[in-house]
Design a binder for these strands. Structure first.
Lengths: 152, 152
DNA sequence: CTATATTTAGAAAATAATTCTATTCTTAAA
DNA sequence: TTTAAGAATAGAATTATTTTCTAAATATAG
């Protein structure tokens, strides 16, 4: 995938704010509307642009309680691993999940209302899954940085 | 913040895809354009909608190497803590940073090109900061789930 | 109930996205 | 270099969408 400097600047602008007009991006890049329009279309078609989304203020929708939960499985048979991953996708409280190196197998990021909601999630949903060995929860005391933008 | 069922459905649609037309959302919600338009405007003004962004495909921009780095500080004097947090905000490789409970003080999510780029970040930038005690890196073997949407 | 404020619908106006045509700029081969 | 082919760009025309406006319907408080 070849991205020239204009593509990179454009993608930085789009990552920061996707609701400006094409004319506004064109002004910043000192290009015509059409040039910017065609570049965006190309980046969408190539798959570089994955999607356009709306980000909400977690504090205002009662989901400001963020927990990182390390999970260890009992068995690492391919079939069980696949099953765990399928089930995690269905858990609405889990916003991110990574298979990671180290002592634990998975790292989950969970957003809920409060500790009580987390307890319900942990006891009622996560540890209720088959093949869960141990879990270790770290609570977010403060969100220092959260960005969906990747530097180009 | 009071959100009725229509607001919640609308926010779920907007979180999933922010580039549809108002008419499209209005059809899904069985409302008029104006009703949806005014609801979106209200949610923006109240701050429930934080921003609209473009998400990129990390694999196609050479940033698919994701690392979670736990960081312990040496001293926890308020001034040093503030300084660390200010500096983390400036590190372009760091996409998320949380002050967390547990053995370590912070959890950082880092996106770079490959292990070599991570080594440069860790040695050249992160551990070069003042007041860093120890760090522990976990490498993402697989991204099982990544979502910016929060269930309402 | 009644008055007031809020939400909604439909139409009109303003703005923006998309397409079209022609031109300019690159690139690679002669 | 020069030239031909392809890609990228500009500007205008068209189409689509957002935004505003007016009036009606619905909900809310006294």
């Amino acid at each position: 995938m070849q991205l020239d400097e204009i593509d990179k600047k454009l993608l930085m602008l789009l990552q920061t704010d996707s609701k400006r007009t094409i004319k506004a991006y064109a002004n910043d890049l000192e290009l015509s509307n059409t040039a910017v329009y065609e570049r965006i279309r190309r980046l969408e078609n190539k798959g570089v642009i994955a999607k356009y989304v709306t980000l909400l203020n977690k504090g205002l929708i009662d989901k400001a309680f963020v927990v990182f939960c390390h999970v260890k499985l009992v068995q690492h048979i391919k079939e069980y691993v696949r099953q765990f991953e399928r089930e995690v996708l269905q858990l609405e409280e889990v916003v991110e999940c990574y298979h990671i190196s180290g002592d634990y197998d998975y790292l989950l990021k969970i957003c809920v209302k409060d500790m009580e909601a987390y307890r319900e999630f942990l006891v009622g949903k996560l540890t209720a899954l088959k093949n869960i060995g141990s879990t270790q929860s770290s609570f977010a005391i403060q969100e220092v940085k959260y960005s969906t933008a990747i530097q180009l």
